[in-house]
């Protein structure tokens, strides 16, 4: 009897320990960034894991840079446009791929997946030419275009899987009620796809928000830069000084909105929205 209790307690301890390790592993870098951002630069290289008195001078300094605020605005614009565009395109594509039977459907799906396997660097020069040809160089639209290209395979794939799982009779019922494909998609299927849309939309947003390589390559001036590039270009008082405090403060400021976004939308990422549609 006692042995069983002991075993149970030990198992529980091990479980909590494992969770603790995982949490530490995931959260520690972010925690240390927050910590660093709240230290005055004089205290920067004293290693400590706790803070006695937060110091907001780094944040104040970052916010005084007009170019940084501009970069945040650009990032918001780019990320929102990418999400909207990617969701619209992938939703309509996923409807066709998941519901309409046509020859070569599997091939198209594999192609979509294949495209997403290229590393960014591989397409960089080609994409650069395209953007120059379209006259989009050094504009937010260059980023929106390139991010959408890289987001679409993933969103299309996820939404196709989701749409394929919705009961076919639901859409047929809408057709019998006189719905066109567009109405069936927007009024009947879309409300059931919310969890998938929120998930893929969030991931697309995060990808666009954090992207660095394209942002660095396709923009030139402070007016068009996005946050990751702006942070990388923050420089210190001299050539040999890296302003860690400023960097960390800026990073924390652009990460917190993402965390909030996930927390807000996770309520919508609930399963079981289709309950009641079918028998049972």
């Amino acid at each position: 009897m006692n042995l069983r209790l002991l075993k149970k307690a030990l198992l529980r301890l091990g479980f909590c320990g494992a969770i603790g390790v995982l949490l530490l592993y995931a959260v520690f870098p972010f925690y240390y960034a927050v910590l660093t951002s709240l230290k005055p630069s004089s205290a920067l290289f004293q290693v400590s894991y706790w803070l006695d008195k937060p110091d907001f001078s780094n944040y104040a300094a970052v916010l005084q840079q007009a170019s940084f605020l501009q970069a945040i605005g650009n990032s918001v614009f780019v990320a929102v446009c990418v999400v909207a565009l990617a969701l619209f395109l992938s939703l309509t594509a996923a409807y066709a791929l998941g519901r309409v039977k046509f020859r070569g459907r599997a091939t198209v799906l594999l192609l979509v997946l294949g495209v997403s396997m290229f590393p960014q660097v591989a397409v960089l020069s080609g994409l650069f030419e395209v953007i120059r040809a379209l006259g989009l160089y050094n504009s937010a639209w260059a980023l929106i275009l390139s991010y959408t290209i890289f987001t679409l395979p993933f969103t299309v794939w996820v939404l196709t899987t989701f749409i394929g799982q919705l009961p076919g009779e639901l859409e047929e019922a809408a057709i019998m009620d006189g719905a066109s494909p567009w109405v069936a998609l927007t009024r009947v299927l879309l409300p059931l796809l919310w969890p998938a849309l929120v998930t893929t939309g969030l991931l697309a947003f995060i990808a666009a928000w954090n992207e660095f390589l394209f942002a660095l390559t396709f923009t030139l001036t402070d007016q068009e830069r996005t946050v990751p590039v702006a942070i990388a270009l923050i420089s210190g008082g001299s050539q040999h000084e890296l302003p860690w405090g400023l960097l960390m403060a800026a990073s924390v400021m652009v990460t917190v909105p993402l965390v909030l976004l996930v927390l807000v939308f996770q309520r919508r990422i609930v399963s079981g929205l289709t309950t009641g549609a079918l028998k049972g």
Binding site: E169, L170, E172, A173, M176, V188, T274, G276, A277, L278
Partner: peptide, 18 residues
């Protein structure tokens, strides 16, 4: 279908859950 004047009840009722 809508032009045929036909209504259909499906095997799984396929009600709009939302």
């Amino acid at each position: 279908p809508r032009e045929r004047g036909v209504g259909m009840v499906f095997q799984s009722y396929a009600l709009y859950p939302h």
